[in-house]
Simulated scan of single mutants.
Amino acid sequence: MQDNAALSADAYLAWWQLAGVESAVAEAPFNWLRPAPAALSGTPTAQPTEAPQPAKPQDLQAFHLWLETESLHPERRWSTRAIYPAGTTDAPLMIITDMPDPADVDAGSLLADRAGALFDAMLRAIGLDRSQAYIASLFFARPPGGMVEAADLTYAAARIRTQVHLARPKRLLLLGDRTIRALMPDDATPPANSLRNFNHDGGTVPVVATFHPRLLLSQPAAKAECWLALQSLIEEDRP
């Protein structure tokens, strides 16, 4: 027993020596609880270094490449399939949804399956089809459970503003409550049945917000209100 106690004591002391402790006591007392001294006036203090921010893309093609290659996007933390925006500059209408639905992930494109069929009908009602629209989402991949952190939502909203600036659409259509609250937090009472101005990196563009097609599938009574919002997109073009 005494031999075991001695071995244990030696092992305990060896552990502390490896940790950098040379002695248990010192000659002079030291108040370990005293506050740290304040920096002297005029003495330069170390400033935290910020990570370098990547330069913003200067055109839509560069933006698409940036989405596909930049490692800082929050979607890189998720293992789900990426679905990138589709369309060209100067489209009559840019549509923004929140994120791919599970059916979109399976199909490899935004607004697919039953919600996509309803969305196509919505476009036809205002005289458009997908070939005339630029379609994007706040997040180009779906997070686990469809839940995102507030910081990621802020990042995605800023990214979309750059995208709108580079895409230069004539009109903007926001789909879904989460999209509206992220991009128009001061006016986020969906749906809005009249055009407003959306601020992006290079100015403003007329915008209208309405329900996402997936909600309309479960609440058909909301279709009438959605139709009023869609009409506001085309009323200014009428003679």
Rank of each mutant, 00 (worst) to 15 (best):
D187F: 09
G176M: 03
R161E: 14
A182F: 13
P102A: 12
G127I: 10
A103V: 12
S194Q: 15
M147A: 14
L110M: 07
G87D: 05
A121N: 12
A182G: 14
K170Q: 11
L153R: 09
Q132C: 10
R161F: 12
T189A: 09
V105L: 06
L93Q: 02
A86S: 09
I126W: 03
V148F: 03
L153I: 13
R124T: 15
T154D: 14
L93N: 06
I126Q: 08
A150D: 13
L172C: 14
L111M: 12
I180H: 14
D104F: 03
R142S: 02
M122Q: 05
V105D: 01
G116K: 06
T162N: 11
P191N: 15
I135C: 15
V164I: 13
D98F: 13
R161H: 11
R114Q: 11
R168G: 00
D120F: 10
L173V: 02
I160P: 00
L174D: 01
L138I: 08
D120Y: 09
G127R: 10
T89N: 10
R171N: 00
A156D: 00
N193W: 07
P92T: 03
D186N: 13
R178K: 12
L175F: 12
S194A: 14
P185E: 09
I180C: 06
N197T: 12
